[in-house]
Design a protein around this nucleic acid. Structure first.
Lengths: 208, 208, 208, 208
DNA sequence: GACTAAGCGAGACGGTACGTCGGGTCTTTGT
DNA sequence: ACAAAGACCCGACGTACCGTCTCGCTTAGTC
């Protein structure tokens, strides 16, 4: 039951410092970029001792991951407060239309610098650092992908998608191309592009 | 007409040092990982002065990119010497079979540590560093993707793929999911998986 | 009439903690040396909160000074319990013999690590820190020196020392050389050496 | 033949940096005191990287010791340039007068802050750190003491000091009291005081 | 016998300095 | 003129302590 050298007492933790560190980390990544964001810089900007960061997080990536998750939660709470929680994709019965809508929204979000900078940084770190990568996928990516699985299942029940199709793989036909274009800049991210992806992919998944 | 600090005379460049630097860079990335691969470390391992690296390359990523390109060229030359150059995908007339074959080979290659470590490192760097990303895509990724475009065009001429399909987008239906699973570890990389991708995708692209 | 941060109530002070802190401080100075003895270390070893130290003492040197004084008192009490209190130097009428005896005993004491480590530490601190230096001299050194003054006065009355000699200065002729050899390691500390000092000092260097 | 981790090449050493470090160290010790003089502070003030200090010196005390030795050499060279080298004490034939003169000069020097601050710091460090203490004595103290030995020998030859007296010990009768008063502040440092010391030491305390 | 109010162990906190690593520049010495 | 070597200035690393500041918990002394 090994602990990381005499684990600190979480009940005594300063909420104030945590918030300040999240804010500083996100701001710095946006302003100067991930590589030039340093723990020292985060601490200075947050008005916090370095040790307070090292006490609660294992690495720069770890800080940013939590900060980004927190950002997402706050955004979700803000959205949820206004009545709607994004726990499911829209389901109007028209699969193609629903997917196009969601993917267009995703494209827009990927362009928001406040989201782009940290998520790109985390994605990059995750490519090379397996531990971070696993957390990134498990805590950020998978929850979203699961929504697609649900929507595709519903479509299968409605007979709009072939029953023998594995939704977890099917979703990659339109999600992965978008992800790759974004991550690797292999092509422009436009609404027309995602519409096309949905068209191409659904033709393959729809029953004849 | 400012040059980057009195541009060095390339004709006097030491081929010996270049080779040693490439080898050292690739070896270190495999052995200790990209983040712990340092310019000092490369220089020391290559038995070369640091300045020799700074004279000819702009950054660690730059060194590795060239080293990796060189590795590819050497591999291609070795393959080419044995008679066959991979300037085109196989074209037996059976598109699905050809794609499955190539993707299976790609899966195998992606698992070879000598290729995986540096290409993963470069991909990661490219995500966060636009300059590197552009070169990575242009010099490593696009040449391969163009082969898929060619093969899909040929299939269109043969009437196996709808004429109104854009091959550059179509190829992403099976290439991008593979890329994402590899980069982000969102799922296992198996031959069955790529076979499934091809099946799902081609159904959508094939004429009815 | 400002007091140092709302002076603590000494009547409520924990005797247990004070003892533990003294013991820990002295033990640490012996074991790891003065520079590596830290307030945190003392607190941890004494099983005491850091604040308990900061509440009652102004500095590491302050703790050690009191701890050492306490050690001296305990030693004196132990000696006193056995009947004899060292409130005066021996006075057999033979000044040279008495001084030699006392200085030999001093040499032996200076070699006892339990005394050497803390007193050396305090002396060093006192050299550079005037406040500590003054307390060290006033509370530890002067009381001993006064005994020499008394003994020399007695010798003057007996006509063994010239009447015009200032005893406070005279005592330095044999005490200071010993002190310097000890503090600065300018030479070996032996019984022969202190005997010689007494001879030289009492008789002078010039021929009669 | 163990070296301290791949010893640096002294021939490539920057004289400029060395000078700047000496100056900064001495200035800081005078201005803020030894304990608040930090390696980081020295480096900053000298306009030098910390590593340049760590490369050539083992500790703060080591830097200061060399800086102080260098200061002494420069002072000696300045004095030597004006014709007189202090390689010997004055020898007018009158031992008492010569000693009084020299000790009065010593008292004046001990009061010069530019000398006092660093030498006090080194003395303090030497009390607690044997390695530093030995170097301090060997390189700073002993050379001076040797001059007293020489002068006393000369006095012995002239019959002004008893032949059976050990000069190395005899000198401590007037030098050590001065040293202790200075180091430990056990009394005021005045010319009268040192005069008295010489009188007592040369003539002894006992009546003739 | 309950109610303050302090001292206390514990340890998180904002800081400063530590000693090390590596980045990128510059200089020296071959070759 | 490039190259090996490595000293240099600099900035960040992760750690150790500093001295301050809450947190419960115990322990008197007061109502």
């Amino acid at each position: 039951m090994a602990q990381k050298q005499s684990a600190p007492d979480a009940t005594r933790r300063s909420e104030r410092s945590r918030r300040a560190i999240y804010d500083a980390a996100l701001a710095l990544v946006v302003e100067v970029g991930y590589p030039k964001t340093t723990i020292e810089g985060i601490a200075a900007r947050a008005g916090v001792g370095k040790q307070t960061i090292y006490r609660w997080w294992a690495s720069k990536a770890d800080v940013l991951l939590e900060a980004f998750l927190d950002l997402g939660e706050r955004a979700a709470r803000a959205a949820g407060a206004s009545g709607r929680a994004a726990y499911a994709l829209p389901d109007t019965g028209d699969l193609a239309a629903d997917l196009k809508l969601v993917l267009r929204a995703t494209v827009d979000e990927l362009r928001d610098p406040a989201f782009e900078a940290p998520s790109r940084a985390l994605a990059a770190e995750g490519v090379v650092n397996e531990e971070v990568g696993r957390r990134f996928v498990a805590e950020l990516l998978e929850p979203s992908l699961r929504l697609y699985v649900d929507r595709l299942r519903s479509a299968q029940e409605a007979g709009h998608v072939r029953a023998d199709v594995d939704p977890r793989i099917a979703l990659e036909l339109f999600v992965s191309p978008l992800a790759q274009r974004w991550l690797q800049r292999t092509g422009p991210l436009t609404h027309e592009y995602t519409d096309t992806l949905v068209d191409y992919a659904l033709n393959g998944l729809a029953p004849r």
